[in-house]
Deep mutational scan, measured.
Amino acid sequence: DFYRCHTCNTTDRNAICVNCIKKCHQGHDVEFIRHDRFFCDCGAGT
């Protein structure tokens, strides 16, 4: 499962994972996106 962060203006080409929300995007306006054509390269392994 992935998310888009409207606060940081993520686009259709990138998304964030749950670990990104916990570490970098906590309290931001995020939108849940189940699956799409992207991956998270944060290195958290999710």
Rank of each mutant, 00 (worst) to 15 (best):
C42Q: 03
N19D: 07
C24H: 11
T10K: 07
D41E: 08
G45F: 08
D41P: 14
V18I: 12
C24I: 15
R4V: 11
G43A: 08
H35V: 13
T7A: 03
C17G: 03
G27R: 08
F38P: 14
F39D: 13
H35I: 07
F38L: 12
I21G: 01
T7E: 04
N9F: 12
H25C: 01
C42S: 01
C8R: 00
H35R: 12
I21T: 05
R4M: 12
V30R: 02
N14L: 04
K23S: 12
H28P: 01
H6Q: 07
C40E: 05
C8V: 00
I16M: 06
I33G: 04
R34W: 06
A44W: 14
I21P: 02
I16W: 11
H6M: 13
D41Q: 09
R13M: 14
G45I: 04
T10W: 05
C17F: 01
T7I: 01
E31T: 07
G43I: 06
A15P: 10
G43K: 07
H28V: 02
H28A: 02
H6S: 10
R4T: 13
R34V: 06
R37D: 11
D1G: 12
D1K: 12
C40L: 01
A15N: 04
A44C: 05
C42A: 04
Q26P: 09
F39K: 13
V18S: 15
D29P: 03
K23Y: 04
H25T: 01
R37V: 12
C17Y: 01
V18K: 09
N19I: 13
F2T: 13
R37Q: 15
C20M: 01
R4D: 03
N19Y: 02
K22C: 01
D1R: 02
H35W: 07
H6L: 12
F38N: 11
H35T: 10
G45Q: 07
N9Q: 13
D29N: 10
D29K: 13
D36W: 06
I21H: 08
C20G: 02
R37Y: 03
R13E: 13
T7F: 03
Q26T: 09
F39H: 14
A44G: 11
F2E: 04
T46H: 07
A44T: 08
H6E: 01
C8Y: 01
D12Y: 07
N19G: 13
T11P: 07
V30Y: 13
A44H: 14
D41W: 02
T7G: 02
D41M: 05
T11F: 04
Y3Q: 06
N14F: 06
A15V: 09
F32E: 11
R4Q: 06
I33P: 02
F2G: 05
A15F: 06
T10C: 07
H28M: 00
N19M: 07
D12L: 06
D12V: 14
H25Q: 03
R37H: 06
G43Q: 05
V18E: 15
D36H: 07
H35S: 13
F32H: 10
F2M: 10
T7P: 00
C5I: 00
C17V: 00
R4S: 04
N19T: 07
T11V: 14
F39S: 13
F32R: 14
A15Y: 09
F2C: 10
A44I: 15
C5G: 03
N19K: 05
A15C: 05
G45V: 09
K22D: 05
F39A: 15
I33K: 01
H6N: 04
R4C: 13
I21S: 04
F2A: 07
C42F: 01
K22E: 04
C24D: 14
V30T: 10
C8A: 00
R13F: 14
I21N: 04
T46Q: 10
H25A: 02
H35P: 11
H6P: 04
C5A: 00
T7V: 01
T10D: 09
D36Q: 13
F38I: 10
C42V: 01
F32K: 15
T11M: 04
